[in-house]
Design a protein around this nucleic acid. Sequence first.
DNA 1: GAGCCGTGGGAAAGCGCTTTCCAAGAGGTA
DNA 2: TACCTCTTGGAAAGCGCTTTCCCACGGCTC
Lengths: 356, 356
Amino acid sequence: MANPRSRTRPARTGSGVTLQQVAEHAGVSLATASRVLHGSGTRTVGEELRRRVESAAEELRYISNAPAQALARSTSAVVGLIVHDVADPYFGAIAAGAMRAAREHRLMVMIAATFREPGLELEYLRGLRAQRARAVILAGSGTTDAAATARLAEEIAGFEADGGRVVCIGERGPEVDTVAMANHAGGGLAARGLWELGHRRIGVVSGPEELLTVRQRLDGARDALHSLGAGLDPADVRTGDFTREGGRATAVRLLTERPDLTGVLVLNDVMAAGALAGLRDDLGLSVPDRVSVVGFDDVPFAADLRPSLSTVRLPLESAGEAALRLLLDPAADAPRRIPLDAELILRGSTAAPPRA
Amino acid sequence: MANPRSRTRPARTGSGVTLQQVAEHAGVSLATASRVLHGSGTRTVGEELRRRVESAAEELRYISNAPAQALARSTSAVVGLIVHDVADPYFGAIAAGAMRAAREHRLMVMIAATFREPGLELEYLRGLRAQRARAVILAGSGTTDAAATARLAEEIAGFEADGGRVVCIGERGPEVDTVAMANHAGGGLAARGLWELGHRRIGVVSGPEELLTVRQRLDGARDALHSLGAGLDPADVRTGDFTREGGRATAVRLLTERPDLTGVLVLNDVMAAGALAGLRDDLGLSVPDRVSVVGFDDVPFAADLRPSLSTVRLPLESAGEAALRLLLDPAADAPRRIPLDAELILRGSTAAPPRA
DNA sequence: GAGCCGTGGGAAAGCGCTTTCCAAGAGGTA
DNA sequence: TACCTCTTGGAAAGCGCTTTCCCACGGCTC
């Protein structure tokens, strides 16, 4: 029997036109229709038939079934992007860069936000694996939690064994392709910048210590200060949430307890916005006359804060783009690493320290 | 023949474990394994077998194949979200709300950004249809382009005929479920707020006229002014891009040509940030002493601008959440409409007008 | 004219799952 | 004991596509 359909099935939910129908309408075989419409192989189809199929598809308003294609091809046109928080401008910029590049390659981007909940990153990576995403970008910072890191590494290895590609933005370990942000160098740039303005009492408003990103930025600042013959007193470093409120509370705490500080490095711009508010409204300290503040990231609104925020610029959009491009290159033998530069942008929130 | 596999196929790319293998490992049939692991039906599986299947899945590190499920079930667990720009805090907040709600329902969100390119919205909607997304949220503003609107409506209808659900944030037409932002009311609130502070010469820095959102906000302001016995001189309204730079240039132009204005309504916060910069740096006009400025949206950084931005608060995250919830309710007979409120937040950028 | 090769069309076997339908066994009832 | 009803497991038909393999045909070369 050529067509043994007999079972009754619940009527399909909609008007879904299938390739088979397009083929029939065009009077060609399914194979030919597939080759015309999605042809990836090296096979060519005659001019005449090709035209017939195309107009049949047009007439029937055929829309291909991506899951079916994914199943048959065992690969898909979707890439995953895992971030901490889409509403955070840092990730927003990265996502924008990635999506722009994705568009050029006709890929769809599935974004998952962990809202900084530990464990969710792993869960989403599994979800993306289930979706048979062709690749995944891990945009959030790695952590110092060894157990979590190991489980994640295992999941990544599994994904790659299945033919998926993974790129991390920021360090996660040497086995994976990474777009390396200049966190360490940036931290150094900021510290050195304050130093050169004349600051000798420099403090840091830091984010959660378990974040690798935070650690690198902090180390960068510390190392720079060291090489300048100074150092960074642990008591001059205070830790808070990587949010505006965290920045505010932490800056207030830091300057209350260490009132002789004249320069403050805040480890991200969102925190810095809070810090500026705290110093001004809670403590009545004028920036930059009394204290200078340097942020990190150069998110879009940094220049609009008052005083405008001096900060370490990271090429966020480029990072997203670079990550996506890396995903598209065939996997190399050795993990690749694309280092991106940081640049110190001096604006209104920094000045020479007040005369003693 | 029980297992007529004979053709040779290229080796599968990876270690992909299939449900079949799990079933064999557990010594049960494929059907049983499916029922245990993804069981959606009303069928129950005995305690003993259930346990066997679960541990087999665990041991083999089974990861289900979402495309295959989507194909078999002809529905998927992904919802699409189409925005203008992920890096724009307005959309970032909406996306965050939607993703938070999506997480509760174990849905994955596929985000597409049109970067305000006309036509791309349609293209992405088709793409999402191809992915067999269960539903799509159209978060960007509708336009006055009748042809584009019609084609989009057609595509939406097709998608719904196929069993998909569509929700728009902001008006798009009466046939579709919508989460209605209080654009008109918000425009009124802002205008009235300036009026009550004593402003009688009020201008508007507007966005692209073809955006429905812009039009509604503007109409709201105009209507309010009318009912106050005043009116809005078209010459007091200037149009620019919906970006920071657009806001800056437009505000400068407006106040250069209409120097007697004392109150300015800027139709979104991103533009308002630019306007503040333009008034201060390009024109040397003090806000709020010389001109008062009111923005729109209340994006997270609004309070951090200096002066802090008075603005019309829209519940962005709630809108994203509401949209997602609407998608999950079964389609109703009549299109639903969830109206959201606006609230005027007075901060530092507004004050009484200068004495003449 | 026999033998080859290159082209291009079609049949059909999968891809990994869901779900229907059938069957077998358990427990009740008359 | 015969007859039913329930429950639960399994066989197998699809879901809509891709791709391999086969075949027919036309144009070459000796």
